[in-house]
Amino acid sequence: MSLLRVEGLRARYGQVEALSGVSFEVAEGEIVALLGSNGAGKTTTLRTVTGLQRARSGRVEFAGRDVTRLPAHRIVAAGLGHVPEGRRVFPALTVAENLLLGGYLRRRDRAAVAARRAEVYAMFPQLAERPGQPAGLLSGGEQQMLAIGRALMLRPRLLALDEPTMGLAPQTAQRVLRAVREIREQGTTVLIVEQNAHQTLRLADRAYVLETGRIVLSGPASELAEDDRVKAAYLGGDPAVDPAP
């Protein structure tokens, strides 16, 4: 049974329809990628799934439960973590405070939060070195790690990542993606949104390609990486090849 099932999701961005019926699913233990160019609706999809934005129609089912109309904080509580586009760490709060808020829902159990924070520090040693530094002064890569670590504080069943390598140097991007792999090995299912298909297809088990608010392609990541249309549109191929199906 799939952990996350999205059916016929429609949503607006401003006054414009950004999603016109998006359907996909993520099974327990998978890494699933959602690919597409800027403005194709990837971020809107994630925001609608995690309740930051209201769906106009369609259905989102998480762990067998209909969560379509739930507010974001209840969806987080249900075990769906979301690392938003642009990292969105709390810039004036310290690293430790950012992580503390990641565990907000368990705030009554201080010991558990502290223990989990130690685990996150173990995963990202760079963060452990500067717990008292304001997050806004971290480098881009460190901010991304903090954002991921913050979302891991509640041990989500599924972690949704929105462009985690955006603007990062290659080595840093690599480290972030390695962390994503590690997260899956620790038992968390991953839904990753990326614009640059190449590295993502290497990482993911399956992928969906989003174009103007619809899923236009889907399949095992290894097959999509070989698909001429994907190559043309997202991997820098020949413009004469029409990427449309």
Binding site: P170, Q174, L177, A197, H198, R202, K231, L235
Partner: peptide, 20 residues
Amino acid sequence: IAAYIGVPDDPDAGLQAEVL
């Protein structure tokens, strides 16, 4: 290619190799 476009013709190479 390294910084941006990626290596379309080298699907078997590991993640690390590509990025580095």
